[in-house]
Amino acid sequence: MGEPESSSINAQSRSTSQFVVNGQSITYQTEVMAESLNFPWSLTFMPNNEILISEKSGQLKRLSSDNKIDSISGVPSVFFKSQGGLFDTLVDPDFANNQTIYLSYAGGTMEANATHIASAKLVDNQLTELKTIFQVTPDKKGPVHYGGKLAWMPDNTILLTTGDGFDYREKAQDKQNLLGKIIRINRDGSIPSDNPYASSQAYHPAIYSLGHRNPQGITYDNQNNRIVMHEHGPAGGDEINYIEAGKNYGWPVASHGKDYSGASISPFKTYQGMQDPLIHWTPSIAPSGLAVYAGEQFPEIQGSYLVGALAGKELRLVVKNDNQVVEQLSLLKELDQRIRDVRVDSKGIIYVLTDGESGQLIRISRN
């Protein structure tokens, strides 16, 4: 992919806005930290206040603490078409010693493609020792519904969300097929011996949960010791779920959404033996990116969920009291931008990526 390129991007655009939560008015500042990003898909915090930004077209960028942005070479070739491309990144917990990162991406051709995970060492601005450590099976046709989100578990195993491939939605219930699942693997790509179906002959041992449509947000909530995930519904029926090992989340047997034609997908909104969502959205907001808020900047929303919304063109704030959703707020509507990803740094500052061929990285802090 050639030599890394570097440029300097200055934060030029700042604005302030307000929201009210629990009767308290909060003023926040938005600041554009990077722009002209080509369909940015995810952001990941690195040591030394650096940020990795993946672009769906197959580029990986590193933003330094002084707003210098570098292109990283050696990224694997991706199947870039429609919803396919370079997806998420993870930084190894022992990065200071092993310089390892992980990438999820669509690989293959229009006729045979799948979600992959690769590991590599990030040395200066180059990926070395790149190797594929996991591939979703079987291959599918068409460039849609990959999932592709990654998250760490507390034991340093990796979670990967996989989509149902759109035309293969019944496979989300197939116990041997990895479409429409959450996968759990070790850092070397092997399958943990304590996966819920590791010793089952009926299930693929990599499966952690099943019955998902196209999950594009997953995180581990350290405050409550649980996995939180959201997924796209069809026409309506987007969901937030608490994920438990071995559980079935219903798709396409149960859904609050309808087919895009208006036809019913299933007569069931809930089904015995399958998990109901914490909340669902109809009409769809098209959720993408998920963070649990923790930090000093906005203590009023501690433990709340931040959800990027593509169709909604907003950052959806889901305010909770224990396990009950008590309020939802639409933030960043003033941007009129599709929000692709959202993360919270160690100081409680919120970062979002806007979607599109000229995407931006935006920093949200207390004014």
Score class of each variant (00 low, 15 high):
Gln173Pro: 05
Leu361Ala: 02
Val325Cys: 02
Ser7Phe: 08
Val307Asn: 03
Tyr197Lys: 05
Phe45Ser: 00
Ala294Lys: 10
Gln99Phe: 08
Thr100Met: 07
Gln216Gly: 00
Gln173Ala: 06
Arg14Ile: 14
His256Ala: 01
Arg343Tyr: 05
Leu150His: 12
Pro138Met: 13
Ser73Thr: 13
Ser77Pro: 04
Ser288Leu: 10
Leu332Asn: 02
Ser25Ala: 09
Trp41Ile: 08
Phe166Lys: 13
Ser6His: 07
Gln324Pro: 03
Phe19Ala: 01
Phe166Gln: 09
Tyr271Cys: 05
Gly85Ile: 01
Thr89His: 00
Trp251Asn: 01
Arg184Val: 02
Glu357Gln: 14
Gly163Gln: 12
Tyr293Ser: 01
Gln297Cys: 02
Asp355Phe: 06
Ile185Asn: 08
Leu37Arg: 07
Asn156Ile: 14
Pro4Glu: 08
Pro267Lys: 10
Ser17Gln: 07
Gly165Tyr: 15
Phe268Thr: 10
Ile182Pro: 06
Tyr351Thr: 12
Ile350Cys: 07
Leu332Glu: 00
Asp88Ala: 08
His256Phe: 15
Asn241Tyr: 11
Val123Ser: 02
Lys149Tyr: 09
Ile51Lys: 04
Asp164Lys: 01
Val307Ser: 04
Gly107Trp: 14
Gly312Val: 08
Thr128Lys: 13
Ile243Cys: 02
Asp345Ile: 09
Ile158Gln: 04
Lys131Tyr: 10
Leu127Val: 04
Ile191Cys: 00
Asp124Phe: 12
Val123Ala: 02
Arg184Glu: 01
Gly273His: 11
Asn125Tyr: 14
Pro93Ala: 06
Gln201Lys: 14
Val228Arg: 00
His116Arg: 14
Glu5Cys: 03
Trp41His: 06
Lys140Gln: 12
Gln302Tyr: 08
Asn97Thr: 05
Ser77Asn: 12
Ala311Pro: 02
Tyr351Met: 15
Ser330Phe: 03
Ile117His: 00
Tyr293Asn: 01
Phe95Lys: 09
Val344Trp: 13
Gly246Asp: 13
Thr16Val: 13
His280Ile: 05
Asp94Met: 11
Gln297Ile: 01
Asn241Cys: 03
Glu334Asp: 04
Ile51Asp: 02
Leu159Phe: 15
Ile240Phe: 07
Gly257Asp: 09
Asp70Ile: 08
Ile72Cys: 00
Met274Gly: 02
Thr157His: 10
Lys121Phe: 06
Asn67Tyr: 08
Gly2Glu: 13
Gly233Lys: 09
Ile191Ser: 01
Leu179His: 13
Ile265Glu: 04
Asp238Met: 05
Glu296Cys: 05
Lys313Glu: 15
Gln135Ile: 15
Pro267Val: 10
Ile101Tyr: 11
Thr161Glu: 11
Gln324Phe: 08
Ser65Arg: 14
Ala106Pro: 04
Glu244Thr: 15
Asn22Ala: 02
Leu353Arg: 14
Glu170Gln: 11
Ser82Thr: 07
Asn113Ala: 07
Ser264Met: 11
Asp221Ala: 01
Pro267Glu: 13
Glu334Ser: 00
Pro196Gly: 00
